Simulated assay, not measured.
Amino acid sequence: MNFQIRKYLNSLQIECKEVLRLGNVGDGGWNICNDDEYRPRKNCTVISIGINNDFSFDDAIANEYGCMVYSFDPSMDKKDYRRSDHVQFYAIGLSANDSPLGNWKMNRLQTIKRKLGLSKIDVLKMDIEENEQTTITDMFANNTMDGVLQFVFEIHVDSNAVTKSKNAKTDLSPRRNKYLQSLANLRIIYNAGYRIFSAHQNPYSLFRYKKTRTRFTCHEISTIKIKLD
């Protein structure tokens, strides 16, 4: 199953002539299309959801384009604060509803946009550790993604890497329900007009089994919005 997702993601759907890696080269950085038609311009806006104490992307895109960046993460034990002239942090997570998750404050994307007074978003970055499985459908409902030009995100297809005994084989295939949900989410994104220009496996999500078998459970995907006929 994991092979089929890799095959789909490796077949890029549109060409971006100039791909910029903003932020860390490894985990924490993201690929942005800098082609004239898609690059962020004056008074650009970025929403970055899922920071995990790594602001390298947020700082880099603010410095590169002068964008106003709104950063969100409820898991960092930080209160809302102004990180710089161009980066504002909120201790809020993204969800399919506006109900709290334990002690974490959670909002839908449409709620976040309404609170910030945003209609146009040059780049939306999302890395929410498997919660995209249930959140993407809500994000793409009711025209919430209208005005988002670039959507970069990570999908998580975890594996059943549980060994019951020393001699048992480990099942490294993704759980069927999450695999199917990931495919359904990719279809939603495609049908909304987003086309993949960059995708790769996150090397930090590698599972190894007896040095001969490997699986990646996370894929970083960068898309741009095209005009549908």
Rank of each mutant, 00 (worst) to 15 (best):
F3W: 02
C16T: 08
E18P: 02
E18Q: 14
G26D: 12
G28C: 06
N31A: 04
N34W: 01
D35G: 08
E37M: 05
R39W: 00
R39S: 04
T45P: 01
I47D: 00
I47N: 00
S48T: 12
G50T: 10
N52T: 00
F57A: 06
F57I: 09
D58N: 14
D59A: 14
I61P: 02
A62Q: 06
Y65L: 12
C67H: 10
M68H: 13
S71P: 03
D73V: 11
D73F: 11
M76N: 07
D77P: 00
K79Q: 15
R82G: 06
R82L: 13
H86T: 01
H86I: 02
Q88V: 08
S95D: 14
N97M: 08
P100F: 12
K105Q: 13
M106E: 04
N107S: 15
R108F: 09
I112H: 11
R114N: 15
K115C: 07
G117Y: 14
G117K: 12
G117C: 09
L118R: 14
K120Q: 12
D127M: 05
T137Y: 06
D138H: 10
D138V: 06
F140D: 08
F140Q: 14
A141I: 03
A141Y: 01
A141W: 01
F153H: 03
F153W: 04
E154V: 13
D158Y: 06
N160Q: 10
T163R: 10
S165D: 03
S165P: 00
K166G: 05
A168E: 02
D171G: 04
D171Q: 06
R176Y: 07
K178V: 12
Y179K: 05
L180M: 10
A184G: 10
L186S: 04
I188S: 06
Y194T: 00
R195I: 03
I196L: 05
S198F: 09
S198E: 02
A199S: 14
P203D: 05
S205F: 06
F207C: 02
R208T: 13
K211T: 13
T212I: 14
T212G: 05
T217A: 03
E220R: 02
I224Q: 04
K225P: 04
L228G: 02
